[in-house]
C-alpha cells in the first residue's frame, strides 16, 4: 500500500515578512514525542534519584552556590528554615512530577512550564559558578528552550494523555484548561 506523508502548510509573519512553508506532520509529531520523552526522562531521573537517596539537601545550592550569582539575592532567601525545607521537598517531587507529566503527556503544558522555570535557576547558578566555562549555551539553556517549545506547541496531544483529556466535555466547557494541558 502506497503511503503519503501528511504535509500541512504554515502561514505566518515574522520581522515584517510573510512566510509560507510546508511542514510534514509526521515528523513534527515524531520530534515532539522525542523531545517529550527525552526531556521528561531528564527530570524524572533527577527527581527519582533524589527520592531514592533521600534525604535531599539543597542547602549547598540555594545557600552556597547561588551566593554571588545573578539570582543569588532571590534564591538565598530559601537557604534556611522552613523555606529550605520547602525547597528540599519541592525540588525532588517537582522534578518527578514534571518528568512524569512530560513522558505521559499529561498536563504537558503545565509540566513544561515548570520544567523551564526550574531550568532558569539551574542555568544561571550552575553557569555562573563554572558551567559557562565553555560558553553560555549549556544543557540547561537548551532544555529550557525545549520545554518552551513543548509548552508552545502542546506536545502532549501526540501519543499523550492530553490527547484524550482535550476531547473531554469538561475541557470543552472550560477551554482555558487548554493552557494547562495539550
Amino acid at each position: 500500500m502506497a503511503t503519503t506523508e501528511t504535509t500541512d502548510s504554515v502561514q505566518t509573519r515574522l520581522l515584517g515578512r510573510e512566510f509560507t512553508f510546508p511542514v510534514e506532520g509526521t515528523w513534527l509529531a515524531y520530534w515532539l514525542v522525542m523531545f517529550r520523552l527525552v526531556g521528561g526522562w531528564w527530570l524524572l531521573h533527577a527527581g527519582l534519584d533524589k527520592l531514592v537517596n533521600w534525604p535531599f539537601d539543597a542547602g549547598w545550592f540555594v545557600g552556597g552556590a547561588a551566593q554571588g550569582t545573578s539570582l543569588g539575592p532571590f534564591v538565598t532567601l530559601f537557604s534556611d528554615g522552613a523555606a529550605l525545607t520547602f525547597v528540599n521537598i519541592a525540588i525532588p517531587i517537582g522534578q518527578t512530577m514534571i518528568g512524569l507529566g512530560l513522558i505521559l503527556g499529561a498536563l504537558t503544558r503545565t509540566a513544561a512550564f515548570f520544567g523551564a522555570f526550574l531550568m532558569v535557576f539551574f542555568y544561571f547558578i550552575n553557569g555562573e559558578t563554572g558551567g559557562w566555562a565553555h560558553g553560555v549555551v549549556t544543557g540547561e539553556l537548551l532544555g529550557l528552550l525545549v520545554f518552551g517549545m513543548i509548552a508552545t506547541l502542546g506536545a502532549g496531544r501526540v501519543l499523550g494523555v492530553d490527547g484524550y483529556l482535550i476531547r473531554t466535555e469538561f475541557v470543552d466547557k472550560h477551554p482555558r484548561l487548554r493552557y494547562l494541558i495539550g
Binding site: 553557569g127 555562573e128 559558578t129 563554572g130 558551567g131 566555562a133 560558553g135
Partner: peptide, 9 residues
C-alpha cells in the same frame, strides 16, 4: 574572552 568563567567558577 571566549568564555565568561573558568571551570572553577
Amino acid at each position: 574572552a571566549s568564555h565568561p568563567v573558568t571551570a572553577e567558577g
